[in-house]
Structures are given as structure tokens and as C-alpha cells.
Design a protein around this nucleic acid. Structure first.
Lengths: 259, 259
DNA sequence: CGAGTGATTGATACACCTCAACACAGGTGG
DNA sequence: CCACCTGTGTTGAGGTGTATCAATCACTCG
């Protein structure tokens, strides 16, 4: 049905970033991440625990089945979660943008491959101490529950896309989701003319949408020819009219991923 | 891409079941539902709050956008969550079996349609009191977090199915999931010869798997002709060899839905 | 320059959808 | 009792959207 993954991840590794420089108070995701509702002594405790890690675009973060030593928040960049079948068919099952949470408390093995799609900085916590703190800190557990419920909603929206949308609608939906989340970063509503950057390669988009690279490429070409999008290089896009794109996506009420 | 939903839900309604008869101690899902880790006074408080509702097969439980007055655990039967696009394309996004939780704390509107696939009994809690209790009872919040994380894992497994599996693999995967969960109810591993009952119509299966009714029917016929399954009436199935079915499903390590 | 990677485009194949007819069981009413 | 209807599932013929296979292009890097 689709080609085995031939692409080899480059084996280069980034050393851990010099840890603990940044203060939580200055953190760009301070009020959106899992730590959002922690203050005072609790924030202090997290601050003590945390350490940063950086990954270059294309680097693996975790392999399915690996022991996980840490959980983490994405500070900057984009990471992906993918499932792989024995014969190499791959499906992306999660797209982690800044403030999203990576890892599952109470589970010591990764359920999916995690990969850096762009350069990524993670704010990590060792699993043991973090689990312990979660048991003692209700607002941390509540925040994580909220975020997980948002993830579940996003996953279900995504299932609708995978199961019932055409290739053209899938591409339009994907671009709309990215546009909305980039707009949300600047605290603006997505509307009118938008310039944006795709955070994924065509291959990763294909894995996200349950398509092949070729189909992704063809549909992008088609949307360009129909004036729905303009293409600027490999990753750059201009949306002359966001509403037009949403029309193409198959649903106006496009809920989509949590911001 | 697929036909608008023409099926009309029969307008018959069941009155609420005589509430509060059953004691939590006798509940068949006592140690698997959201209340599993509550004891003593907490269980007592839930017991006071709870009320039962019954729905006949085919009845709607909630419409997308409805105000939700309660959250609930499925006690017996099977319910479904579905998303619908304006043009009528439908995708099931959740399959709720006994002990699964319905509803989202902290949200007052339903995000999807919920429907009784078979006759269903729910153990309900009014939203306000339940939310309040969740804020005061860490083990309740933790249990719900755990269950939500399981749901998220299941949704992601499902995404792999929707995005990358063939029709035949989808059918085999679905049957395997149901077989495993039915086996789990009897606390047995799924293996060898299994007799089972499909809890869904062909239409609901199609909505689950992102297929059409016709394709579902054809693939079941094909699996029957290949000796992978035997068909007993509309809903009955015999699996001569569970392992053979799993082979057909595309993945041996078939994680799937939480039990 | 050549090698390598990511993306585009074209020709063809086929898996699944669409439309349509039919089978079968259960219920209802004359 | 049988004719009729309705809901559910099966089967067939044909069309189409996307995958597959393959060639080429644009860029970057050594």
C-alpha cells in the first residue's frame, strides 16, 4: 500500500544544551505548558528538576519500545510521533508543537517513535521525580488531564480526516491547522492573507495524512493552480484568503489540534 | 466519497431505569471504571450521586453540540462516538465498551454524537457535582487521566488503521479487537478457537473503519471464503484460529483499545 | 563537477467507491 | 395464512481516486 521507509535518519547527535540557564519566568511556553498552573514553591521545584535537550531536524528523540528516562515539554520547534508496521508502512499519530507534552507518566516505555521535524528544544523532567510530583501536586495532574483531553479531541478530528476526507481536503485541512496554530502563537485569529512556513517535509506530510509523497505533491500543485495557495520555495506558503482554504478543507467548523 | 446518513434513528425512548437500586459493591465494572480507585467515603459519595440510564439499541445518547448534564460510565452494552461532516460523511471516533467513560469534565457541550449500538446501561453523574468531586479527590482525577491516556493510545492505533491499512486488514483488525475485549471480559487471553458476537451493524463497522457498507460486506465474505472466519447469522462469528486472524490484521503486536 | 536529497510530473494499475439489483428475516395488517 | 413492507446485508458491473513505478528537476554539499 505504501513504500517502506527507506530514509535513514542521519546519525549526528546534538549534545544536551547547556542546561538550566533559562529561568521559567522567561519561558516562552510558561503559561501554556504542563507547568502553566504551577506557582511559587511548585514552580521552584520544577525549575530545580528541569533540564534542556536539543535535537537537530531529522534526529530521533525516542524509538518505540525504548525505556523513557524523561518526559518533556516542547519549548521550540516541531516533533512528530509515528507508528510503524512491520512492512514499513508509517502513520504519524501526533504532531507536537511548542507547549505540547511528550511522554506518558506511569509508563516506562515509549509507545511510538518520536522524531524532531525541525530543530527542537525540549524542557525535560526525569520520569521518577516527575511522577512523584504529579502524585503530590493536584494542579499538575489536572493540567495534564486537560492537555491529554485536548490531544484526544485532536486525535479524533484527525481520525475523521484519515477516514473520510479526500486527498485535496486532507492537504487543505493540514495547511489550515498549521496556519491556525501559527496565528495562535501571535495571539491573532487566522483570517485574510497569511504567510506561513510548513514545518514538515512532503514525506512527513504524507505520513501525517495517510497519503503518498506523490499525492501530496500533486494536490499542492492543484491547490496552487486553483489559486487557493501560493508556493514560496519548498516550505513557504502564502494563503491569499484563509476562508477559501477552509472551504476546501471539507469542514467550516474546523476544530483541529489544540493550540 | 460516501453516502449521507439516511438511517433514521427510531424515536422511541426508554425511560430512565429505576435508579439507585444496584449497590456499587455489586457493580460489574467496579474495579475497571473511573471509580475503581475510590474506597470508603469517596465511594459512598459517588454512590449517592449516581443514577442509571438505559438506552435501546439505535437510540441517540447525545448530539454533537448538546449541553451535557452528566458524565457516565458504560455499565453494559456498547456505545459509539461519531463525527459528522456537513455533507453527511461520518466517522466513528470512539467505541465505548463496559467500564469506558463518556463525557469530558470541564466541558459543557458534547463534541461528538453518542449513540447506543446495543442496549446500553449508563451509570451517570451530574456534571457539576462530579467536576467538584474531581477537584477534591486526586485518585479520581488520576484514574481519569490514566483512562484518558489509554483512550489516546487507542485513538492513535486506530489512526494507523485508518491511514495505512487495507480494507481486508481493517476488517481483520476490528474483529481481533472485539475478540480480545470479549476475552478480557472473561479474564482469558484471546487465543485458539473463539466464538463471538459483533456488537455493530455493517453500517457502524463501515463508519468505524472508514469504509463503505459494501466493502465491509465483501471483505467479510472474502475472509469467510479463505477460512479465516465463519459466519453465524448476521452478527455471530466463529474464529477457528485467532492467530490466523491476527496475521491478516497487518500487525502482530496489536495493541488496540484498552480493555 | 558528481553525488545525494527532496520535490515534481507522467503513465499505468488497482483497491475501493458508486450505483443498482437482489436476498432474507421480522413485523404488520388484511 | 399470505401479501406487503421495512431494515439489513449481499452481490455485481463499472468508474475513479490514489498508489505504484519511473523519469526528471532543483538544490545543496563535498
Amino acid at each position: 500500500m505504501c513504500k517502506p521507509a527507506l530514509t535513514q535518519i542521519k546519525p549526528r547527535r546534538t549534545d544536551d544544551a547547556p542546561s538550566g540557564d533559562a529561568r521559567c519566568g522567561d519561558c516562552p511556553i510558561r503559561y501554556r505548558a504542563v507547568c502553566a498552573q504551577c506557582e511559587g514553591p511548585e514552580l521552584e521545584r520544577l525549575e530545580q528538576m528541569k533540564f534542556y535537550r536539543s535535537y537537530q531536524a531529522g534526529q530521533p528523540i525516542l524509538w518505540e519500545g525504548d525505556r523513557t528516562e524523561f518526559v518533556a515539554s516542547v519549548v521550540t520547534g516541531v516533533a512528530t510521533l509515528t507508528h510503524t508496521l512491520e512492512d514499513g508502512r508509517r502513520q504519524m499519530v501526533g504532531l507536537l508543537l511548542p507547549s505540547d507534552f511528550l511522554g506518558r507518566p506511569g509508563r516506562d516505555r515509549a509507545a511510538y517513535d518520536a522524531t524532531a521535524a525541525t530543530d527542537v528544544v525540549l524542557c525535560c523532567f526525569r520520569r521518577g521525580p516527575f511522577d512523584q510530583m504529579m502524585r503530590q501536586t493536584p494542579q499538575l495532574a489536572h493540567r495534564l488531564l486537560d492537555m491529554t483531553l485536548d490531544d484526544l479531541d485532536a486525535a479524533r478530528e484527525w481520525m475523521l480526516l484519515l477516514g473520510r476526507k479526500t486527498a485535496r481536503e486532507k492537504i487543505a485541512s493540514f495547511i489550515a491547522i498549521i496556519a491556525r496554530r501559527q496565528a495562535a502563537l501571535h495571539k491573532q485569529p487566522a483570517q485574510g492573507r497569511i504567510e506561513m512556513e510548513l514545518p514538515l517535509t512532503r514525506e512527513a506530510m504524507a505520513d501525517y495524512l495517510g497519503l503518498t509523497i506523490e499525492t501530496v505533491s500533486r494536490q499542492i500543485t492543484a491547490l496552487r493552480q486553483d489559486g487557493v495557495i501560493e508556493v514560496r520555495g519548498k516550505r513557504g506558503l502564502v494563503l491569499p484568503d484563509y476562508a477559501r482554504l477552509v472551504e476546501e478543507s471539507g469542514d467550516d467548523s474546523d476544530g483541529g489540534l489544540p493550540d
